[in-house]
């Protein structure tokens, strides 16, 4: 399978201007690649920079040095240098990100939160909502909650709404930040099988997961970020 994502010598340092310009080097020289249909799991102790790497790939964090190459439709984009507009287009067409926490919009119902990323791509609102509903039901979100805004849901329910939102579009690259962290065993198994199905459909995945049994089921390779810890 072709390479979908490639990181070459990626580094990140935070400069805290409010603390007198304190520099916090996080990682340096991170290099790995992911092929279509493959899952790379990032490991390392808490604070080593796992989430930071995911955020850099998604463009939420800036990349100080190195290249983050996304391949899609014969195009190669270096996320580290992509203009905002290009990055927004890539988020619609190529790369998805399931964060640890749901950032809900006030007043928007769960089913519409999940359907939103697919609207404006040509599909009808009704069809997209019906697919969003199916996925939410598969993730055991009670029928009675589907039209309520998720802000008041439990942590596990919010996480599953977040997963549904990230998994509904069929994107070539998916970034998962602890997708099963606050789920019980049954829901954890469902999410694990959703990830395995994504891989079968050719999605390249980079995931941060602490649960060893989940990691064993989804990982094709493991990148230990401890090896790329930046010297302070």
């Amino acid at each position: 399978m072709p390479i979908a994502l490639e990181l070459i010598a990626v580094s990140k340092t935070f400069t805290m201007h409010l603390q007198g310009g304190l520099r916090l080097p996080v990682i340096a020289g991170v290099t790995f690649s992911v092929r279509a249909g493959e899952c790379v799991v990032l490991t390392g102790r808490s604070g080593v920079g796992k989430s930071s790497v995911l955020k850099m790939i998604f463009g939420s964090y800036r990349c100080d040095a190195g290249q983050i190459l996304l391949y899609n439709d014969g195009q190669r984009t270096d996320v580290a240098n992509a203009p905002p507009r290009r990055m927004l287009a890539l988020r619609r067409s190529t790369i998805g990100y399931v964060s640890q926490f749901l950032r809900a919009v006030p007043r928007v119902g769960t089913i519409d939160v999940v359907a939103e990323p697919l609207l404006g791509n040509g599909a009808s609102r009704e069809e997209v909502r019906s697919r969003a509903g199916d996925l939410l039901r598969r993730l055991n979100i009670p029928e009675s909650l589907l039209n309520l805004p998720p802000a008041t849901f439990s942590g596990g329910e919010q996480q599953r709404v977040n997963i549904a939102r990230g998994f509904l579009p069929q994107l070539p690259v998916l970034l998962l930040d602890e997708p099963t962290a606050s789920l019980d065993a049954a829901n954890c198994a469902i999410v694990t099988s959703l990830i395995v199905e994504k891989k079968k459909r050719g999605t390249a995945i980079v995931a941060v997961v602490h649960d060893a049994s989940v990691r064993d089921r989804i990982a094709d390779s493991v990148v230990d970020l401890t090896n790329f810890a930046a010297a302070a």
Partner: peptide, 19 residues
């Protein structure tokens, strides 16, 4: 400073934006 909304808010670079 300019950039993607999440980038500027989650990883602000300039002293004023950080403030």
């Amino acid at each position: 400073e300019t950039g993607l909304t999440d980038q500027v808010l989650d990883d602000p670079r300039e002293p004023y934006t950080q403030l």
